[in-house]
């Protein structure tokens, strides 16, 4: 049971969700305060994306409750949620005919209220988001012309333009090259430290998640298997239980975080 704290931005208790009567998530609780970065890891079909859907209110929980800044998510309108909480979905949904600049600016939607056109503050926020994600040079390109990695950074920039307090990301680095993986994780870390942003990100990259996230939540078959510091979660025993594979774990040299190395199955070793 995760207790709601006074400074909690996002809090979930005993979340459960079923698709057509088939449970895909059960008993998940988490707590996210300002400046915290939580990584959600787990094998395919373990309920990671479903969890993000529940946390941002796009899916209604069958069980449990999500609270945003202490209030139940269901009490907010979509625009109110979007003013505080951003989502970077896995499949980059973009309008292909819009330019990069137009797309990022459209991220300001929820903050504009009844205004029809963006003002200078909106323009400035969009420009900052584009600079952070290294897409300023693409401003006049159409989003339909971009590469996969560029699209991924564009979707992140659109979410950042709204300057949310909580940011949920579904595999934000999956299409990125090494430099941009570091850059994106670095900018999230900086925003957490300097602006008090709360981040919850789903990742398949255990090492990248372990390197940047203060806490990890390991899901297996829709249930939380472990939650805690990377060194507590990224252990050979837990990974074996969740993924069914043998790994070796040592320390990576830059921060002393756990480093997971995949081992070949025993029967195929030379």
């Amino acid at each position: 049971m995760v207790e709601a704290r006074a400074d909690s931005l996002l809090n979930a208790q005993d979340l459960g969700f079923a698709y057509d009567g088939r449970p895909v998530l059960a008993g998940v609780g988490l707590e996210l305060g300002p400046g915290q970065m939580l990584g959600v890891i787990g094998p395919n079909g373990s309920g990671k994306s479903t969890l993000l859907g529940l946390l941002c209110g796009l899916l209604p929980p069958d069980q449990g409750q999500v609270r945003l800044m202490g209030r139940p998510l269901a009490a907010f309108s979509r625009a109110q949620i979007a003013r505080h909480l951003g989502l970077v979905p896995q499949a980059a949904q973009l309008a292909p005919g819009f330019t990069v600049a137009e797309t990022v600016l459209a991220g300001r939607f929820a903050l504009m209220g009844g205004r029809m056109f963006e003002n200078q503050a909106d323009q400035a926020a969009a420009a900052r988001a584009m600079a952070l994600t290294d897409i300023s040079g693409l401003a006049q390109r159409r989003s339909g012309e971009l590469s996969g990695g560029e699209r991924q950074r564009l979707v992140l920039a659109r979410a950042l333009a709204a300057e949310p307090q909580v940011l949920l990301l579904d595999e934000p680095t999956s299409a990125l090259d090494l430099e941009h993986q570091l850059r994106v994780m670095g900018l999230l870390e900086t925003a957490c430290r300097e602006r008090g942003l709360a981040v919850c990100l789903v990742s398949h990259d255990l090492n990248l998640a372990g390197l940047f996230c203060g806490r990890l939540l390991l899901l297996s078959q829709g249930r939380p298997l472990a939650q805690g510091a990377p060194a507590e979660v990224l252990t050979p025993a837990l990974i074996k239980r969740a993924y069914g594979v043998e790994v070796a774990v040592d320390q990576e040299p830059s921060r002393g975080r756990p480093r997971v190395t995949l081992l070949a199955p025993i029967e195929t070793r030379l």
């Binding site: 796009l58 949620i81 973009l94 309008a95 459209a106 939607f109 929820a110 504009m112 709204a162």
Partner: peptide, 22 residues
């Protein structure tokens, strides 16, 4: 609803996440 249409044009999920009551 012009601005809503701009976001709906990106897809329902993106529009909802950005604040449109789709």
């Amino acid at each position: 609803f012009a601005r809503h249409l701009n976001l709906l044009n990106a897809g329902d999920q993106a529009a909802a996440a950005l604040g449109v009551a789709v």
